[in-house]
Design a protein around this nucleic acid. Structure first.
Lengths: 342, 342
DNA sequence: TTTAGCACTCACTAAATACGAGTGCTAACG
DNA sequence: CGTTAGCACTCGTATTTAGTGAGTGCTAAA
């Protein structure tokens, strides 16, 4: 259990360190206006805090920096929630003024806003496959051998793919298949498509048409492509401005991670409700062991749609970022809710 | 005019420098197997080459590095074309083995292959707006107030957007408008859409329907979104492995450039036929003044479709990259040609 | 024309020194 | 007993100095 004074000191150290990125000494804390203690007293407390694991010393004769445990305590107990600076609110209001007419546009827009406001990297996961169901499937021929398969989802998202029509399959057969797919797959969640396609429907289709196998393959490949394109990154270069990443090696490992969508998605998977904060090693990926990741899921009518995340150094403006994310995820729910049809 | 020996020396220096990224001294050239001259002789020639502007000296007591002019001469006169190393061919063959069923998939695939093969950054511009025409337009209602507008292009590319239906517009009117748009805009190149929309068709539409303005706006915004999503980047992080970019500042300015699609596209605009090589300051953008950009346009049936590019340090494996690009752009034409319908 | 020889340049490295921010400990103070 | 002034000590960083070596330019000889 920390005393009130220790909490104050820990809080002050984190605030200063977030700003300066350099170890904080006892004197600079003592000089703060609202602190009535000498450097010596602060030093004693700092020594205790270090012993308890909330602070670290880069080397013997340096000031202290917060440990992961220190950040964790700060986030859990010292942060007063919900206060957003007025100029942040203003710039968001300004940015939301321009109307976006496309679902993915909103998501990208939010990602851009987050990264430019915070100077960290923002990662936004688009609507998740779980809650997405098929609304409509259609195949439009382009030439004798090619067609465009179009899948319209309930979220308004449209997936399309140019496909090759199997040799010798007449248009009438294609239409038959499309009809069957339409009636049987409507409102089926994306994740269940594959099993449903192979287990239930292939039998039924075989009664009506030949060569349905190829078409099923087509549809499935359309679905597979659905996994990508759902990660929106913004402000990658912001990483480069952080002093902790002046070393190219570290940046490279992080960028490599960001370029690889699957790993990135794995980072997010246990996305519960609300805001989640992973500090340093808590997110179990070596490359970002000195980064923090703050994620917020957004949902409509109770069903989770996706996640927005901010990746920055552990030395992060937690209060501000959390405030922004709360606000933005709420706003996203509002805007996306209109498209969702309520 | 360079003597044969000078050309040999210039070529040798560039070859070595490309490999080592360090200034090349006279002795190391002299030691090469096929060179029968002493370091002193080489030095004299190097001194002459420097005076002519083909070489540079980082400082007095260092070896020489190629200047932009030197690279230019190398590319223009010393490079023997068309020889591709067999293992490059093999890895490409292997990578092309997996079938891609989507137009943009091919493009991204090629971009990935280029960057992983060369260890530079690849930039691919998708099919250009000039040669793209409308094949089909359609509006699918999702709810009372929203619909998905779908535009199918002749290239097989599909652009879609969720749009809000203007208050009080009945379905029948929407259908009327769509019909008119379909008959009048079919086969119109994308670039001419805007003028055609406003000049010719708005009159005609106003006879049949009210509120056509909103719908036109919708269609136009669909078209505008066509400009983006057409730049495919791959291997950005490869930049970080190049020794010339160990300085974070330089990397940042390049990444900032790459993140901004419009500037990037501007880089490519004067895309003639065939392969184009811009060395250093030749591409007039400060951030990449010590980069080279090699671009190749690919076309089908004579009409240019897009451009693939490789961005790397001026110290680049010109011969190999050019060979790869020639091969890949040809292959892309082949594969894309199938979709284009011959 | 080519080459050996040699003095010279200059970036880079390592060791030596100085500096100073910051600590830990002790003793005195209220 | 908590707080604080004083002080020796630590150790990273910056600065200086000297040394090293790769590479050059020039000259004179082959």
């Amino acid at each position: 259990m920390l005393t009130e004074r220790q909490r104050m000191i820990l809080s002050a150290i984190i605030d200063d360190y977030v700003r300066s990125a350099e170890p904080i000494g006892s004197r600079s804390i003592s000089k703060r206006g609202n602190v009535g203690f000498s450097p010596a007293t602060i030093r004693n407390e700092m020594s205790d805090l270090e012993e308890m694991g909330y602070l670290e010393q880069p080397h013997t004769s340096a000031g202290r920096i917060p440990s992961h445990k220190g950040y964790r305590y700060y986030v859990d107990h010292l942060l007063q929630h919900g206060s957003l600076h007025s100029h942040d609110l203003d710039s968001m209001k300004g940015a939301f003024a321009e109307r976006i007419q496309e679902m993915e546009g909103v998501i990208q827009h939010v990602a851009g806003m987050l990264s430019s406001l915070t100077n960290y990297t923002s990662i936004v996961l688009g609507p998740e496959v779980f809650s997405t169901t098929l609304k409509h499937i259609q195949i439009i021929p382009i030439s004798d051998t090619t067609a465009v398969a179009i899948l319209v989802m309930n979220t308004g998202h449209v997936e399309n793919k140019t496909v090759t029509i199997p040799e010798g399959m007449p248009m009438s057969e294609i239409e038959k298949v499309v009809n069957i797919l339409n009636t049987r797959l409507k409102n089926v969640p994306l994740v269940q498509f594959k099993s449903k396609l192979y287990n239930e429907i292939s039998n039924e289709l075989s009664k009506y048409v030949t060569g349905y196998q190829e078409l099923l393959g087509m549809v499935e490949s359309v679905l597979q492509s659905d996994e990508k394109d759902r990660v929106f990154l913004s402000g990658m270069t912001n990483m480069l401005t952080q002093p902790e990443f002046k070393d190219v090696e570290k940046v490279k490992s992080i960028f490599d991670l960001l370029e690889e969508a699957p790993t990135l998605i794995k980072l997010f998977t246990p996305s519960n409700e609300g805001i989640e904060i992973k500090i340093g090693a808590e997110n179990s990926i070596e490359a970002i062991s000195n980064c923090s990741l703050i994620t917020a899921s957004y949902s409509i009518a109770g069903t989770p749609l996706g996640t927005i995340g901010i990746l920055g150094p552990t030395r992060m403006e937690y209060g501000r970022v959390i405030g922004l994310m709360e606000h933005l995820s709420k706003h996203m729910e509002l805007v996306l809710g209109r498209w969702y049809g309520k």
